[in-house]
Amino acid sequence: MSRAAAFVATIVAVAVVAGLVAILPQLVNDYIVRVVIVMCISGVLVASMGLGNGFTGVFSLGHVGFVAVGAYVSGILSLSQAAKHSYLPDLPGWLSGITLPFLPATIVAGLVCVVLALVVGAPLMRLSGYFVSVATLGFLIIVNVVLINAVDFTRGARTFTGVPLETTLRWAAGWLVVTVIVLARVVYSPTGRRYLSVREDVIAARAVGIKVLPARLSAFTLGAFFAGVGGSLYGHYLGSFSPASFYMAYTFALISMLVIGGMQSISGALVGVVVVTVLSEVLRNLERGLDFGAFAIPPLYGASQIVLGIIFILIMIFRPSGIMGDREFGLGRFVKRKRA
């Protein structure tokens, strides 16, 4: 895509999203709006996960660890003074004195994740294959244990609550647009091509002078920033969460979105989010049982998870690169599409 065309495409996309955000709440009820908000948050998380896991080929199982850190950091920062007194009486003075608005708290949460990702990633990004997956799984478990034990900051295993409910559709969609634009700028740039070459062949990449560790680490770190942002959105959407919210179940949910959609493109991540979310919602309503008058299907709670798992495996067998593979959506006839 030429620069001008890309610019136009971006403007059009942003306008479409802004339009949708403006009219959606008028068209449908609050339940659907909520599903869309959750989709936007998942979009931020899955797209950022795809940066490291898909584009550099370092499959991390620790993304949710950063989401957790983001949720807790932003939560602590945006808790009101009164809430801090009652829920976190042992918070150190320098933290208990401040209450940040939503946007700065979210950005700080992202930045904390960046620092953490640099510290964790510097050694871990040297690993490859399943070794990095298992090591990052270890990271997730360690984050979980620390959250449970850092009682002064997190209330431990008890529910962290009192976070202001600020994640509206505007915020969630806005951050999704920012995430997609930033990721697209990075991925379809010389840096992004370095990521791909690192993924495809480490030795060849080094032979042509690409430094593998910085490439992987930068993708991991940028992904962690948006994981932190997404964590903040999640925290301010629900208002309360606990370490158990950010563990294996959530990890599997996000991974299934990424894998089903296709982890080698940003569109894939977004398609995965939409497909899995809509499918889960539909199945969740179907498994409650159907009454056709003449005959009835009894409720089968848990069936939706099983169907999702089977779809996951079928994708792995018949389309291991997901629905989208490495293709991206263009804007069809509006912009003439060329391979990046």
Binding site: G57, F59, G129, Y130, S133, I255, S256, F312, I313, P320
Partner: peptide, 15 residues
């Protein structure tokens, strides 16, 4: 790929 195997087994666990 390694990751495909790993993910397939994750899905089997889930099921």
């Amino acid at each position: 790929a390694d990751v495909t195997l790993l993910l397939t087994s994750l899905a089997v666990t889930y099921i």
